[in-house]
Amino acid sequence: MGGHSDLKLLVNGKRLDGRTQFDLRPIRVEVGVLHDADGSAFVEWGKNKVICGIYGPRECIPRHGADPYKAVLKCRYMMAPFSSLEEHGRSGPNRRSTELSKVIREVFENLIIVENYPRTQIDIFVDVLQSDGGTRTTCVTAAAAALANAGIPMRDMASAVAVGKADDTLVVDLAKEEDNFGQCDMPVAFSYRKKDILLLQMDGLLTRQEIETLLNEAEKASEKVYVKQADALKKVYDSKEEKFKM
C-alpha cells in the first residue's frame, strides 16, 4: 500500500497472474509435517510458503506469567531472512512481526477452549519461508490446521483471506503487487461455523458499500479455504500407506 507504480494491475478484467476479480490463488495444505511438534501444518498459498508448529499445553515459562484459570496463548510470527526481496526477518522481531504475532494470537484466543488447561501455555510458531502478499492470512490458515492436528480443543475452525481494491476494482486474495500498489488491503479471518470475524484489518480506503461487498466475498472465499484445511486434516486418516516417523 502507498507505493506508486505505472504497473497496470488489471487488464481486461484479468489480474497480473491471470486470475479474475474474485479468484483465489491455488492453495495446498498439509498437516503433520513436523515430527516433534504436537501439531503442525504447511501451507502453500500461491507463492507464499508457511510452516506452523504447535507446542503445548505445557508448563508456562516464566512461571509468573501463568494464569490459574486458563491456558496462556503465545504466538510468534517470523519471516525467514530468505523469505522475500526486502529486509525482512534479518534482525529478529520488528514492529511488523510483533503486530502480526498479536493479531494471529487474538484469532485463536477466541477459538481455543483455554479454560481446559489452567496454568499452562500453548505455543504457536508460524514461520514464513517465502512471501508474496497475504502472509498473515496464510499464517492463520496454517495455525488453525496445525491446532486441529495437535488435538487442542477448539470451539471452531478459522480460515482467513485478504480482500481489497486495486485499480478501482474490488479483488479477493491480493498478491504482492496488488498489495503494494493497490488502493486497499483488508485481511479478514472468519470462524467456519459461526462466521464470526476474528481478524479485520484495513490499510487504505473503502466506502461502506465496498466493505459490505468485500466481506461477503471474503466469507465465500474463506469457505473455500476451509475445504482445503478440512481435506488436509482428513487425509491423514485416509492414507493407506504406512509412514514410519518414529
Partner: peptide
C-alpha cells in the same frame, strides 16, 4: 453438542476423538 478436537463419528452418533491430550 459440538466436537472440540478432530474425531470420528459413527452411525449411532458415537464420537471417538482421534487426537487429544
Amino acid at each position: 453438542t459440538f466436537a472440540a478436537v478432530i474425531g470420528m463419528l459413527d452411525e449411532e452418533g458415537k464420537y471417538i476423538p482421534l487426537e487429544s491430550r
